[in-house]
Amino acid sequence: MNGASNAHVRPERIEFVDALRGFALFGLLMVHAAEAYSVGLSRGTDDPWGQAIFFLFGSKAFAIFALLFGFSFATIMGNQRGRGVDFTGRFAWRLLLLMAIGFIHSLLYASEILRLLAFLGLLLIPLDRVRSNFALLVIAVLFFLQIPLLIQWMLANWGNAFAGSEPYFANSYLWDTLRTGSLGEIIKANATEGNLVKWSINWSFGRVSEIAGLFAVGVVIQRTGFFARIAKDRAIALGLLLIGGTIFAILDFIVKPMVPGSPSGAEFAIGSFTERAILFQWIGISAITAQIGLLALLWNSPMQSIVGLFRGPGRMTLTLYVAHSFVAVPILYQFGLGMAEVWDTQTRIVLAIVFFGLQILFAHWWYTQFRYGPLEWTWRAATLNDWNVPLRKNVQPAV
């Protein structure tokens, strides 16, 4: 999520990045609403509303977050380096704190992304030592090639039973527990089985390598000032939209129908599963390229005020992201109101849009009074071990 690097010196924010981060937060909420927060995974794609949400945000919103995570890391390290400070150890501590927040969050919602981003974020520390942007882009491409998945594929073809076996998450008892378990049973399952399932999903679908690659690209984007430029240059934004949109259309509408599915059970095939995992990665990357270009175009138009609505949530994504689960899970799960069995996908999505609208209002009100979101301030103060970090904005003296 987003964060700053120093308690007393505040670098100038790129407001377009805040809006982009808020857009990604909205996308995550939409996907989670379609899935009924893991209670109705299969139902989320069974109707036009769910299909539309996954087309727009599935495997895309989290990718924007990963890209911006790398961007924020490079911003923090660059700002501190400019002050002559080596922030490496402090940033590692910052990631451990995020892992702790993510673990607490995961006890209620196992599919949350904070732990994954924080753990893989440790890769950013050695990536920061690579001073060549070209070398970082080469490293990103190597991650995007999904070499671990290809090795697994080859091992399966050579007869390795473990490499060719069905992914662990496919037959986990976690899904039944989420649908019917008590709060205590869900917390216990999320603390144990949930971690195994989460890593199985992210490994099997290639997200581990993809996130690492997006981290590297995010660092290059920060170093080159690309987001600051695209927020002002309509030609670059249009180029991104056209290139990303063209590649996305080719992959999603032409190539994807040609790649066989990956059935489960006795017919599971590692080859077709791997092919689709790698294909979906490139579909997602091309899609977010187009989305970033489109948002930048709108930012440079009379529509800026509408895109700008995402800025408030984009400045407090950690707080709002965690709040999503603490509101939605008790409403949807059987231990609470059990509304996942009552509301269809359309209803859940419409209600989620309304909920996010309320969060926009809350975030914009909050930042008229305070400098940071609640969890953002806590994370920042704990990172710096300085609980005197000012939260409220300075009050102007009376005239």
Rank of each mutant, 00 (worst) to 15 (best):
G284Q: 07
I283F: 08
V307W: 14
F280I: 14
R276G: 01
M316R: 08
L332Y: 01
A290E: 07
W343K: 05
P302Q: 12
L337P: 02
G293A: 10
Y333D: 01
G336Q: 08
M339N: 10
R315T: 08
T274A: 09
A328H: 03
T317Y: 10
P263D: 14
I306K: 11
L298D: 04
L294I: 03
L337Y: 05
S286L: 11
Y321L: 12
A328D: 01
I283M: 14
I292R: 01
I306C: 06
G284T: 10
G338Q: 05
S264G: 14
A340D: 13
T319M: 06
I331D: 07
P313S: 09
L295T: 00
A266W: 12
E275N: 07
I306N: 05
T319A: 02
S262F: 09
M303F: 15
G338D: 06
L298Y: 07
S305E: 10
I278W: 03
V322Y: 00
G284M: 05
T317H: 02
S262P: 00
V327Y: 07
W299G: 10
F268W: 12
I306G: 03
G271T: 09
T289G: 12
G314Q: 11
W282A: 05
S272V: 00
L320G: 06
I292Y: 02
L320K: 04
M303P: 02
L294M: 04
G312L: 02
F280M: 15
Q281E: 14
P263C: 06
L279T: 09
Y321K: 04
L298W: 09
T319Y: 02
N300H: 05
T319K: 01
L297C: 08
Y333W: 05
V322T: 00
T319N: 07
G308L: 12
L294N: 03
S264H: 11
A323S: 09
L332E: 10
L294F: 12
A340Q: 03
S305V: 14
Y321F: 15
V307M: 10
P330W: 00
S272R: 03
G293H: 06
G308V: 15
S305M: 13
T317R: 02
I283E: 06
L337C: 08
A287L: 10
L295K: 03
A269C: 11
P313K: 10
T317W: 02
A277V: 05
Q291T: 15
F335K: 03
S305Q: 15
F326L: 06
L295N: 02
L297Y: 12
Q334L: 08
G308P: 13
H324N: 12
E267H: 15
G284F: 08
E267V: 11
V329N: 14
G261R: 06
L294S: 04
A323Y: 02
I285Q: 09
T274Q: 06
P260R: 03
G261K: 09
P313M: 13
L318T: 03
Y321T: 11
P313D: 13
I285T: 04
G265Q: 08
G336H: 09
L309E: 11
L320Y: 01
V342N: 06
S305H: 11
L279E: 11
P263R: 05
